[in-house]
Design a protein around this nucleic acid. Structure first.
Lengths: 220, 220
DNA sequence: TCACCGCCGGTCCCGGCGGCCGCGGCTTCG
DNA sequence: CGAAGCCGCGGCCGCCGGGACCGGCGGTGA
C-alpha cells in the first residue's frame, strides 16, 4: 500500500525537491502540493493524504496554524519542516499534534524514514530538537523531585492538609472539606509548618508546588 | 578522526553483532566490550571511548546505573539499548544523561546514525520513545500557559510584588527587598489581589506558579 | 501495661494581613 | 490644560492565622 503525501512550502524548489525524493520511493506518492498554509489545508481536505509535510514559514497561514486546523481531522499525520529550530516552533508544532519536526538540511533517507515512521503512528524529530526536548524533560519533569522526600516527614493527614493549603483554601474551608472542626485544621497546620520549616501558609503553598505535591496546570 | 566505541551487553551475540556493524564503518572502532555494568564502567574509565552503548538489563549493575556512574565523567556520550521500551527505563536513562535510547530491533544504519548523532553532541531516540516523550511534553508542559495573559492586568511593579509573594516573603521582607515602606507593599498587595481575583497571599502564590511566573525547581 | 503517636477538639492571645480612606508627586494621554 | 494611571506613603480597623498549652480517643509496640 502506497503512502500518499502532501507537501506545502512557499519555495517551489524546496517543494519539488522533496517531492522528487519521496516520489522516487516505490511505496510513496506525492498527491498534492501547496504554496501556503491555507492552500495546504484545503489540499489535505480534498486529497486526504496519509502524510502532510508543512513548512513553518508560509504566507497567508503558517505551517503551525495549518497543523492546528488539521489536527483532529482525518488520519493525516503531520510533519513540520523548518530551516531554523526555534524553540517556539518546536513546542507549538508538537502541541499542534505534529508527528515529526525536521530541519530542511535533513538527509534524504532521514526524510524518507521520517515519513515511514510518522505513517506508522510514531514520531521522529531532528537530533538537535530531540536534544532540547530531552533537556527540557529532564530539567522540568525530573520524575520524583529530590525534595519530595521531605513529605515523608508528614503523616497522611498532614499531606492532605498541605494539599488543600496548596489549593489556597482557608482553614474554615479545609475544615468543611474534611468535615472536621476548624480548630482541628489549625492544629494540623501548626503541625505541618514546623515540620517543613515553613512560616506561612503561603510558604506551605510553595512547598506543595516544589515537592511536586501539586503540579501547575493540573486542572484539579 | 575515528569514533571510539564501547559496548556493554550481557549477551555475547548481541555484543558481537553490534560490534560488527560499527566496526564495519570506516570511521568507527569498537575499543572495548563488557558483559555487565560494572565492567562497562571500568572499561569506559580505562579506554575513554567517545560513545558507550549500554544495555539496560545487565547483571551486577544495569545500564542505567552505569550511565549515572559515568554521567559527569569524561566526554563519553551514552546510548542506552533495550529490548523493551519501558517508560521507566526511558526517563531514568535520560535523567542519567543518555544521548540516545534505542530498541534492539534498530535498523543497522539507524544504529550507525545514532552513534554519529550522539558523537555530534545531539540526541536520537527510538521513534516509539519519541512519540511518548512528545505526548508527555505536550500533556504536561504545554508551553506558555494560557492564563499567563492575566498577568498583563498587573503593572510591572505589581508583577514584581507578585513574584516576591510567590517566594513566600512577608510584607516586611518585601519592603526591605524593594527598599520601600512596608505600607507601600501593602497597598501594592491590595492592588494585586483584587485584580487577579485572589483572596490571600497564599492564593497569590498559587497564581505565581500557575501563570508560570514562578517555575517549580527553578533554583531561585 | 504503659508509653508513644496520630488524629481530633478546645481556649487564649496577638501579630500580621488585608480592606478602606486619604495624601502627594510623577508621567502619559486626550 | 485637566484627567487618568502608577508609584510611594500614611492611618484605622477587623479578622484570620498561627503559637502556646490543654484535653480526649484510638492503634502500636516495647
Amino acid at each position: 500500500m502506497t503512502i500518499r503525501i502532501a507537501i506545502a512550502d512557499d519555495q517551489e524548489l524546496v517543494r519539488s525537491g522533496f517531492a522528487m525524493i519521496l516520489d522516487a520511493q516505490p511505496d510513496m506518492e506525492v498527491v498534492a502540493e501547496a504554496a501556503d498554509g491555507a492552500a495546504a489545508v484545503s489540499a489535505v481536505r480534498e486529497h486526504r493524504p496519509d502524510i502532510a509535510l508543512l513548512d513553518v514559514r508560509m504566507p497567508v497561514m503558517d505551517g503551525i496554524e495549518a497543523a492546528k486546523a488539521l489536527r483532529a481531522e482525518s488520519g493525516t499525520r503531520i510533519i513540520i519542516l523548518t530551516t531554523f529550530d526555534q524553540d517556539d516552533y518546536v513546542y507549538e508544532s508538537l502541541r499542534a499534534g505534529a508527528s515529526g519536526f525536521l530541519l530542511k538540511d535533513v538527509r534524504r533517507d532521514d526524510l524518507v524514514h521520517a515519513v515511514r515512521v510518522a505513517h506508522a503512528g510514531e514520531a521522529l524529530l531532528a537530533p538537535a530538537v530531540t536534544r532540547r526536548l530531552i533537556d527540557d524533560v529532564v530539567r522540568h519533569r525530573t520524575g520524583p523531585r529530590a525534595d519530595r522526600a521531605v513529605l515523608d516527614r508528614l503523616t497522611a493527614r498532614e499531606r492532605e492538609i498541605l494539599l488543600l493549603l496548596g489549593r489556597g483554601l482557608s482553614n474554615a474551608e479545609i475544615a468543611r472539606a474534611l468535615v472536621v472542626s476548624d480548630h482541628t485544621v489549625k492544629t494540623h497546620v501548626s503541625s505541618v509548618l514546623p515540620k517543613l520549616a515553613l512560616r506561612d501558609r503561603a510558604q506551605a503553598v510553595i512547598a506543595a508546588y516544589e515537592t511536586g505535591l501539586i503540579v501547575p496546570g493540573a486542572s484539579g
